[in-house]
């Protein structure tokens, strides 16, 4: 990562999104705490709206583009920021997709321009901000070496399967900065979370389902399918020897937690692996407490395991 990013990412516009105000509250909390501990500045996007998630595009894709563009427009035109950081894969994906569509599809740009004028704000123009994920943020602003220097209570070889899900890498064309040579993220085999957690002292297991789908889009509308997909991920992680699955998306995280219980209660398939946000793991390594990081808010109860490992 170049030095200009190191400086550029030290102060970013923060777009938490709807899930982080609800079921993903622990992710919100731990992201803010880790930012604080690392001396990074998060400025929340004022009056942000939902990005459209996985749902609005099925009513109309251009409305989703408009919703995402409004968030970027506020960050750029009202707040004067040039980087938007979204920890939620869904938000991150949709902002990236809007960015791509506005740069390459005149029809999308026309609709966004028209709706923004009617809604009374400046239209977002492609290139005004750079949207990044929480992983990019820490990786570029602090880096593995910086993290290693700041670790106070290393993860002591905690065996972790890193789960990235779908929206962080697919489809490839909306992430032009990925697959761009040494140092860049890979859409085929992402490694930013692996890199950060290894620097924090975790032992990353060989996990083949990093970018498998948890069925998050149909977690309630086709629950049996989601349960099968999640069970597959949980079992693969356990087979790989993981004690913990690290997540970087609130939908994946709550999907894994919910269907772990559902697989057990409805189909009698019990799994033990714990599900923890990567920011919570980083926070522990930085010496923050379980409570500060919202570990007690997780449905998947990892407190005992972490205590036994001497991590809390």
């Amino acid at each position: 990562m170049s030095d200009d990013k190191t400086d550029k990412y030290r102060r970013v516009a923060y777009y938490p999104g709807c899930a982080l105000e609800g079921t993903g509250h622990a992710y919100n909390r731990s992201t803010r705490q880790v930012g604080k501990a690392l001396g990074l500045d998060l400025v929340e996007v004022s009056d942000w709206n939902c990005c459209g998630a996985m749902e609005v595009k099925n009513i109309d894709p251009k409305i989703q583009t408009y919703l995402s563009s409004r968030v970027m427009s506020i960050a750029a035109n009202r707040m004067g920021m040039d980087v938007v950081m979204a920890p939620c894969n869904g938000c991150y994906h949709n902002l990236k997709k809007a960015e791509y569509d506005l740069a390459h599809d005149p029809a999308s740009a026309e609709v966004v321009g028209r709706l923004s004028a009617k809604a009374g704000h400046d239209a977002y123009r492609a290139g005004q901000v750079e949207t990044i994920h929480a992983l990019d943020w820490i990786k570029a602003a602090i880096g593995e070496e910086g993290l290693r220097q700041r670790v106070r209570n290393g993860l002591k070889g905690l065996r972790v399967a890193n789960y990235y899900g779908c929206m962080y890498t697919r489809p490839r064309h909306i992430f032009p900065e990925k697959d761009a040579g040494p140092g860049s993220e890979s859409t085929f085999e992402p490694h930013f979370m692996d890199d950060l957690l290894a620097a924090a002292g975790a032992l990353n297991v060989e996990f083949p389902l990093k970018t498998a789908c948890c069925g998050g889009a149909h977690t309630l509308s086709d629950s049996d399918t989601s349960t099968k997909l999640v069970l597959n991920i949980l079992r693969a992680a356990e087979t790989a020897g993981a004690e913990v699955i690290a997540t970087e998306c609130p939908t994946c995280h709550s999907g894994l937690e919910m269907h772990q219980i559902r697989a057990d209660r409805k189909f009698g398939h019990k799994t033990q692996v714990k599900i923890i946000y990567f920011t919570q793991l980083l926070g522990l390594a930085l010496g923050l407490t379980a409570r500060q990081l919202g570990l007690h808010e997780n449905v998947s109860d990892s407190l005992e395991l972490l205590a036994a490992k001497g991590l809390t």
């Binding site: 609800g22 998630a53 609005v56 889009a217 149909h218 309630l220 509308s221 086709d222």
Partner: peptide
């Protein structure tokens, strides 16, 4: 489909208020 019903409920909330409340 159940999926379409979910999408409609979700989108209706977003369009009405700008955000959703999961509960």
């Amino acid at each position: 489909s159940p999926s379409m019903i979910f999408d409609e409920e979700f989108s209706e909330q977003v369009i009405r208020r700008g955000r959703i409340e999961e509960g």
